[in-house]
């Protein structure tokens, strides 16, 4: 028996919108720790890891570990039927091949349930080791989204370079090239507007902008984004999901042929 009640149902709606472009089908795993997902895009160069900790739910019942295969486009269709203020409850019985999404309006005058078929998904689970990153940049998520969008009108790849001067996003294409430098800036009115750069050593890596733009679909989840870079490792682009968890996107760097 599985029963997860999330008062801030809009978080789940936003999570789905953040990952459905990158991943088509995925297993959602439920355990005592929480509700999680790990999935790769079809070409296996990007990976998304989601964790919503059990403490973040108003009610969390998971009698035994459960893996539920879902088509994310179909989940998104279901969740789009929930109002932004609705309380969302996920329910599944042991051995069932369906999951039920229950939507309650804030004043309890409307209750809907949507049952969705589960699917068998054969997915490989990668062990992601804890890594020391050469540079960690925390910046406003809207600023990062704007940079990725702007640069993708010029080129296909972005070089992200972190030095003691700041973080530089560069691209080049047929019509020309572009460089955007963001300097560390902690003298702002609100902490979420700050750009904070922690650098152990300079790092410069190249990534496909198509994927970066896809990651920025998570922007509505958090005012800030954290970008962790290390040479020879995938970049980690992390958005916090309120105080209950995170979405982490991993992207392999472009390498020399």
């Amino acid at each position: 028996m599985l029963e997860l009640r999330l008062v801030q149902g809009s978080l789940l709606k936003k999570v789905l919108e953040a990952i459905k472009e990158l991943v088509t089908d995925a297993n959602f795993d439920c355990s005592a720790t929480g509700f999680s997902l790990q999935a790769m895009d079809s070409s296996h160069v990007a990976l998304v890891a989601l964790l919503l900790r059990s403490e973040g739910f108003e009610h969390y019942r998971c009698d035994r570990n459960l893996s539920m295969g879902m088509n994310l486009n179909n989940v998104s269709k279901m969740l789009r039927c929930a109002g932004n203020d609705d309380i969302i409850t996920l329910k599944a019985d042991d051995g069932s091949d369906t999951v039920t999404f229950m939507f309650e309006s804030p004043n309890q005058d409307k209750i809907a349930d949507f049952e969705m078929k589960l699917m068998d998904i054969d997915s490989e689970h990668l062990g992601i080791p804890e890594a020391e990153y050469h540079a960690i940049v925390k910046m406003p998520s809207a600023e990062f989204a704007r940079i990725c969008k702007d640069l993708s009108s010029i080129g296909d790849t972005v070089v992200i370079s972190v030095t003691k001067e700041g973080v530089k996003f560069s691209t080049r294409g047929d019509i020309g090239n572009a460089n955007i430098v963001c300097r560390q800036n902690t003298t702002v009115d609100k902490p979420e507007e700050a750009t904070i750069i922690e650098m152990q050593e300079p790092v410069s890596l190249t990534f496909a902008l198509r994927y970066m733009n896809s990651f920025t679909k998570a922007t509505p989840l958090s005012n800030t984004v954290t970008i962790s870079l290390s040479s020879e490792l995938p970049v980690v682009v992390e958005y916090k999901v309120a105080d209950m968890g995170y979405i982490r996107f991993y992207l392999a760097p472009k390498i020399e042929d």
Binding site: H44, L47, H125, G127, L233, P234, I255
Partner: peptide, 14 residues
């Protein structure tokens, strides 16, 4: 700079 490695190159399968 052309190809990207797949995730399996970086992270072990468990």
């Amino acid at each position: 700079l052309k190809t990207q490695s797949r995730m399996e190159r970086f992270f072990r399968c468990s």
